[in-house]
Design a binder for these strands. Sequence first.
DNA 1: ATATACTTTCAATAAATTTTGAAAATTCAA
DNA 2: TTGAATTTTCAAAATTTATTGAAAGTATAT
Lengths: 168, 168
Amino acid sequence: MKLTEAKQQFISSWGAFGTHWGINRTMAQIHALLLISPDPMTQDDIMEELNISRGNTNMNIRELINWGLVERVLLAGERKEFFSAEKDIWKVVKQIVKERKKRELEPMLQLLDKLEEVEGDKRDKNVKTFVDTVSSIKKLGKQADKTLDMMIKAEESWFVNSLMKMFK
Amino acid sequence: MKLTEAKQQFISSWGAFGTHWGINRTMAQIHALLLISPDPMTQDDIMEELNISRGNTNMNIRELINWGLVERVLLAGERKEFFSAEKDIWKVVKQIVKERKKRELEPMLQLLDKLEEVEGDKRDKNVKTFVDTVSSIKKLGKQADKTLDMMIKAEESWFVNSLMKMFK
DNA sequence: ATATACTTTCAATAAATTTTGAAAATTCAA
DNA sequence: TTGAATTTTCAAAATTTATTGAAAGTATAT
């Protein structure tokens, strides 16, 4: 396979992959493009490569910056802004985990805390089932939260080694 | 908080949560409803509780069955079909992991295998960056694949204990 | 200061996804 | 069988989400 074709496939499937994870296609495609690009790119480079409009490009680059996956790079003597993606995949994964934990897991746990305190007689099976379900989700969620916290702090080598031992 | 209100909140936020994970709102809501329902429910019960159409209900129940999260229950002497959700949250999580691994991670790893073999001179920095990126994603993906396989087979207690030790 | 290069915003539009509901298909009891 | 109850399908409609592109905003060089 030629590089051009391989690049296309990588970008396109990274985009499709993203849509299964609540990330929009374009954002994932820009990320993919920057991941495989050896040098920082300008907004115009990206627009041209992916055939998308200026506004769309701008919006999604900014979103990638919010997620901490892409950074603005200023090149000496250049007027335009350049963008480049973090290439260390372990760092990328940790960053995504960190953001999603903050945006989704933590608010969910807060809600579950509140819902667990529902009024009512636990002898009522409706109340019982509700409370039991909420409690068990909360318990697993709290464990996940701790585990992810450790993962975020960990070095890849340490993490992989620990898993190896755990699953030997 | 009253049970009725708590149920509403649980269902609605479970739905919103689902949309961040590539699952449609209704499917997640039906799942939430069945999780907190002590007894199996009919399609009509679900339609009424969530105010959704018959077709929509039917489609999403079937999708939940495909995911292995809900099962058809036949009650003696009843003509209608009843549905109930797996209540053991650890089993639910494992089931979801299993399905997503099969649907998303495995095809991605297959693609990466192909893309890694791109033609071209590794002294070309475009080729080098591409291959390096693909390889490192593949490496992490393979590790994740193994880890998830073990998790799918594990008992909750075993899994939690191992994590505890790992992160002590 | 002014012109030029570049970036951001956002209302309008397009595309993708979800939902509806009526019709068709199926199941089952008599 | 027949027909009533129930489930499934699917084209059309509604809704949600993404994209465009032109206009407004900003920064920089002269």
